[in-house]
């Protein structure tokens, strides 16, 4: 069995508060792995630890067999680990094309070229255009990001991650804030990614999760409650309890 992404008893404390509690996660290469759990369970925090956005208090992060616990974020991206953010973090005053070209530049190692213009690096531009086409963003390629609807912006968020040609892709509620119809399209796009790309998905919509995932981990209170195939998780009484409790709170 080869794992694309692993953690060994990962812990993150914010002051006295334990946001991630001894999480040991194994994501198989090529898996469609979903991470679910109630609000505040620590899902985003876990992604932040995986990508190096946060430093863990203890424990290790292993990417494709190598320890990357103390590697900087951009170095992990270079090794094929890309993510999207739960809340859009975009470049408000760049156009859609510029944003994506910028991300492609970084992957191609062109980001420090300072003499030839952006447009003259045609390999990067072509690739960005292709990516925009794939995400149906071509018609707004020259729009400034801030002028787009949130749903469209969400696609840029994904385009930026895909520009890194990741081998492991972490998606933090990619459809959050997207109208239902568009979110279906969005999931088709995600499901259409090549199988070599390992995907770890955070999502609250259980229908989507069960349709998409071949493996599910349930996170509660910072710790992994249980893990298994969708069938097992669907019938796990502990999981039901967690979600029933939540349903009542809602």
């Amino acid at each position: 069995m080869t794992y694309a992404l692993q953690t060994t008893s990962l812990v993150k404390k914010f002051g006295g508060f334990v946001a991630t509690s001894k999480v040991s996660l194994n994501v198989e290469a090529g898996a469609r792995h979903a991470l679910i759990g109630p609000n505040g369970a620590g899902k985003t925090t876990l992604i932040n630890l995986l990508t190096g956005f946060l430093e863990p208090t203890s424990g290790e992060v292993i990417l494709n067999g190598d320890k990357v616990t103390h590697l900087a974020q951009h170095q992990r991206v270079k090794r094929g680990l890309a993510r999207t953010f739960q809340i859009n973090r975009l470049f408000a005053d760049l156009t859609v094309l510029e944003s994506v070209v910028m991300a492609v530049n970084e992957r191609l190692g062109l980001g420090a070229r300072f003499w030839q213009s952006v447009g003259s690096h045609t390999a990067a531009v072509d690739e960005a255009v292709e990516l925009l086409e794939r995400l149906r963003l071509l018609d707004v390629a020259h729009e400034t990001t801030r002028n787009l609807a949130y749903g469209k912006q969400r696609l840029i968020e994904i385009a930026l991650a895909l520009a890194a040609k990741p081998s492991v892709l972490l998606l933090d509620e990619p459809a959050a804030g997207v109208p239902t119809i568009e979110s279906r399209e969005l999931f088709e796009t995600i499901a259409g990614l090549p199988r070599e790309v390992t995907i770890l998905l955070i999502e609250h919509d259980m229908d989507l999760v069960f349709r998409f995932a071949d493996r599910i981990s349930v996170l509660v209170g910072g710790a992994v409650l249980t893990e298994g195939t969708p069938e097992v998780i669907a019938h796990d009484p502990k999981v039901k309890e967690v979600y029933l409790g939540e349903a009542i709170c809602d």
């Binding site: 951009h74 991206v77 975009l90 470049f91 991300a103 991650a161």
Partner: peptide
């Protein structure tokens, strides 16, 4: 424009 996002694109 968004210093926090840049490391995440590498």
């Amino acid at each position: 424009q968004n210093v926090g996002r840049m490391p995440a694109i590498g």
